[in-house]
Each structure stands twice: as C-alpha cells, then as structure tokens.
Design a binder for these strands. Structure first.
Length: 501
RNA sequence: GGUUUCUUGGCCGAGCGGUUAGGCACAGGUCUGCAAAACCUGCUACAGCAGUUCGAAUCUGCUAGAAACCUCCA
C-alpha cells in the first residue's frame, strides 16, 4: 500500500462523494454487472466496462488487492413479450441457446481485449450458478419475503419495504407508492400480488428451452437474481463496490438490493457506482431503436455517422476525456479531436521516456521542478477525486509542454533536476499505461528491429541530402514516407518519425 | 403523467462560492531550406430572468430547452 491519499468516490446511495474506506484494509471487493450475451456488444457496453476498467486499474495502482467480479448473464432476461433473450436469439438463428451465449461471450471478451481492459478476477456465468440461485430463492421464501404463485416465485416488495424501512428505493430514489400505478401490464401480472413484485423463479412454458428443475417448478431464475447470488458467492454478503450502467439502477439494482436483504439480511455493497450513457445524436445509444454504431463500424469508418476510421485506443482516450458520470456524445468532430489528443499524449510520453537523465544533480529545486511536480500531483489528485480522468489528462498535457520545451532546448536541461525527471518518467508512464490503459497503436519506432533499421537508413540518407542542400531528394523522401503514413519530424537533434495520419 | 438529471467559448469537455482547466479548430509569431512537429501569443464562455452573498458557471426560485428512468438495455 502506498496509499495515505484519500480516495473519494461518488456513491449513488448517498448522492454525494464519500471517502472510500474498504471493509478490510488493503482489500477491495468489486462487482460490476456484465453484459447479457444475446447479441454483439455495443459501444455503450464498451464505455461502461472501460470506465470500470480504469477504476479497477486505479485501485490496483493505489496498492489495493482487488477482487473484481463481472458476470456474464446468459439466462433469465425477459423481453417485452415474456420470452427469454437467449431463447429468442436461438430461435432467430436456429441455434442452441448455449451456442448463442457462447458466440457472444467470445465476441464480448474479444472486444474487451481490443479496448485493452484487464480481465476481471472472476467472470461467473449465470447458467453456471443455478443451484446458488435456487438456494437464494429458498432463503427468501424461508424469510417470508417471497411467495409461490402457480409454480413461479415472486419477491414480495410491499412486505419487504415494511420490514426494511428506507431500503427499497435507496438506489434509484424510487418511491414505492408511485410504483402502484406506473408498472405496466405484463403477461404474468395476474400472478403477482403487487405490480412492483418481481419474479425470482419463473415456471417454464412448453416452448421454453432453457429450463432447470427446482422445488417449485421446472423453470428458470428471474433476471436480477444471478447478480445477487454470484456477488454473494464470490464477494460475500457485504462487499465494497457494486457498479453498473446508469440504466440498471431501476429495476435491476433496486431489486438486487432487495433480494440480498431478503436472503442475507444485509445491504450487499457499501458503494454503488453508476456510469453514464454514451450518446449518439444526443440520444442514448440503443440497439432497439437503431440509434447505434458498433465498435467495428468505428474501427472501419463504415458508418454514416463518421468520416473516417478510429482506432480502439483513440476511442478509449475519447471516453477518458469525459468523466464517467457524465453523458458523452459521439460526434465525428469530437472523435477527430480526441484522436489528435491521444496521439499527442502518446508522443509526449515517448519523448519523456527517451529523455536522457543527466548525471549532474543540482542541489536546488528549480521553478521547472516545482511546476512539473505540481502537474504530477494534480493528475493524481484528479484520479483521487472520483476517478476524474479528464483532470488527470489535462495535467498530463500541462506537463507535456515542459517535456517538449526541454526536447526543443527551449528550456535548458539544467532547469530540471534528475530526480524530478525520473519521477516524471515513472509517474506519467504509470498513469498513461497502467491506469488509463492506453497502448501505442501507431506502433512507431522502438519495437520493430527491421523497421527501425530501415528508417534509420532512410533518415540518414535524407540527412545527407539535406547537408548537401539537395532539397529535391530530401523532400522526395519526406513526401514518399508521408504517403506511406509515416510522418517525419525535423528537430534540432536530427529527425524522428512516427506512424500516423 | 411521475421521478431524476442536464444546458459551459467555433466543437468536445473539466469545474462542487473567489485561480488560465485541458484537447481540437482558428489567427498571428518563433524555429525550419520549405513544410510538418514543437513552442509562444490571441480567441476567455458559462440557456434566460430574479434572488442569496463582499464575491456565483458554481447556492435558491422561476422560465425555456434537452435527456435518462418509470418497460429489455451499459
């Protein structure tokens, strides 16, 4: 632990930022609601899981030992017409439900890798935890908070609200009385005693494909339940952080909390974090109404919404420029700007890492030293303040200015103390690579021996031409490289190159 | 209809009562054989109205517009 610095986290339960205090010092249990794998991941998922990836990474950076659990839901998610999402997907594609789940689970994991998110510590699958879910239904029944109706089991929300004052509604701010009239008519409505009640076990109809035996009927678990059962199994009855998209607050998280109370008698998580939506055309991205763009379309540029292709890392940077609790609107202009900003940050870091550290150590701290240290401090303060990546990036940019000045010799090398430069190298690299999770997708100089050798030769030939004032040859080389997507940058110390538009 | 949230300069986007956020774009300059890159300078905004305060983008109220949830969604 290198963590005396207090971390502030916005808790949806209180509606304000709170100092984060883990249940067990040094350890963090974090559960994030994962995807329902019935079709391809969409970008909104990517933003949510990228946000939690940065949160996970920052907790690791702070020295916490984190158990990060993110589920895969492959059953129990009903559509409007009461059909299971998996089964519906299976029927459409004439596949086994598990084939559907498998295909999209693999696709999801691939996409997470493309966005360079770290895999969770545990990625439990709903259908792999049917016994745990059945046991939880039984516990809820034993505690008198559920009732069986025609083979299905429902959670008794009014009774729960009476027994646990001020719990139902604590996540979403919903008021139970309002729910009486609001809940819309569903097929199984008549089996419920109260409109706000929700199924924790559903009796199967003849056409249902994904079914299991239970004490009540052959059927399947309700949505919500898998998260309660699996978070309890892997993180305990009470753990530190529970996360998910904003749109899961109600009913999913509200019901999850109710189930945990109903089964275990206590609140599952101390801190509830909700990420905000990714917008397209100023509206929430949504598959159902077609207002959507897939990650692949962004990577290829094949969409009416964008003018060109964008790399996964440019997208990741784009997301990081906004705070996770703010909505973020996708526009071509914004992506263009983010892409340039991303390249700049990566170039700056490369410049910094390659900067030689002079042996001479000045005894006094210079103004530049202080300014650079202030940038570093401000970057981490930003992260400490509810994971404010926007502020952290701004601070990195501020620091970058000094690095460039130093590289251009607009600032004398003696202006920065060796230990400060060393600190900057470590801190900025840690921030950009380990915390932001950005990789250099331009694959420019440094990695490939063959390309580097080739480029050294080409640039040497060009340097010779320039020495001879053979501008024709010099420019021919530069233009040809440019056409090949390689940018040559002439500096005082010679020329460097990088790949990128 | 109910609940909640949002409205920041050409664009994106921080901000949580008193500071230049930052990026992109644009204009001028330095450097350069010319460019590019980098650096410097400029552009300095908070939907509207009223109020609280020595002081408000930040707090309160009203008005206008937008969004999310209430129904599957990250």
């Amino acid at each position: 632990m290198n963590q005396p610095r207090p971390l502030k986290i916005y808790n949806s339960l209180s509606g304000k930022k709170e100092i984060f205090t883990p249940i067990t010092p040094g350890y963090v249990g974090m559960y994030v609601c994962g995807p329902t794998v019935y079709s391809d991941v969409h970008l909104g998922n990517c933003r949510t899981f990228t946000s939690f990836d940065v949160i996970y990474r920052y907790l690791l950076h702070l020295g916490y030992k984190v158990r990060y659990v993110r589920n895969i839901t492959d059953v129990g998610h009903l559509t409007d017409d009461g059909e299971d999402r998996m089964a519906k997907g299976a029927k459409v594609a004439q596949l086994e439900p598990m084939e559907v789940a498998q295909r999209y689970t693999v696709g999801f994991r691939d996409m997470m890798r493309i966005f360079n998110t770290l895999p969770p510590s545990i990625e439990p699958i709903a259908t792999g935890h049917i016994p745990e879910q059945i046991a939880m239904v039984q516990q809820i029944l034993d505690n008198g908070l559920g009732y069986e109706s025609n083979g299905s089991v429902y959670f008794n929300v009014p009774k729960f609200a009476e027994q646990y004052k001020d719990v139902y509604g604590s996540v979403s701010g919903r008021i139970l009385d309002d729910l009486y009239n609001e809940t819309r008519e569903l097929k199984s409505q008549e089996e419920k005693r109260h409109p706000a009640d929700f199924a924790i076990w559903m009796k199967a109809r003849p056409e249902d494909l994904m079914i299991w035996e239970s004490p009540w009927s052959t059927g399947f678990p309700g949505w919500h339940l898998e998260c309660s059962a699996m978070s309890t199994k892997y993180l305990g009855k009470n753990f530190d952080i529970h996360g998910g998209g904003n749109d899961l607050k109600f009913p999913h998280h509200e019901n999850e909390v109710a189930q945990n109370h109903g089964a275990c008698g206590c609140h599952p998580a101390n801190y509830w974090l909700h990420t905000n939506m990714l917008l397209l055309n100023s509206k929430k991205m949504s598959k159902s109404d077609g207002n959507t763009i897939t990650p692949e379309q962004l990577f290829t540029g094949d969409s009416p919404f964008v003018s060109k292709s964008y790399s996964p890392m440019a997208l990741r940077f784009f997301m990081l420029q906004a705070h996770y609790r703010s909505t973020l609107d996708i526009t071509d202009d914004a992506l263009l700007a983010a892409e340039k900003g991303y390249r700049k940050v990566m170039e700056t870091n490369k410049l910094l890492q390659n900067m030689p550290i002079t042996a001479v150590s000045s005894s006094t701290e210079t103004d530049t030293d202080r300014a650079i240290l202030a940038c570093i401090e401000s970057a981490f303060e930003g992260m400490d303040d509810d994971f404010n990546t926007a502020i952290a990036i701004a601070s990195v940019n501020d620091l970058g200015t000094y690095i460039h000045k130093l590289a251009n010799q607009q600032l004398d090398g003696s202006e920065i103390s060796p230990w400060v430069l060393e600190r900057a190298k470590a801190a900025i690299n840690d921030l950009i690579i380990n915390v932001f999770g950005l990789t250099d997708d331009t694959a420019s100089g440094g990695d490939d021996k063959a390309i580097n050798g080739l480029m050294d030769l080409v640039l040497q030939l060009r340097a010779n031409a320039r020495t001879n004032k053979d501008w024709g040859t010099s420019d021919q080389i530069r233009d040809a490289l440019n056409a090949a997507g390689i940018v040559v940058k002439d500096g005082k110390e010679g020329s460097t190159w990088s790949i990128g538009a």
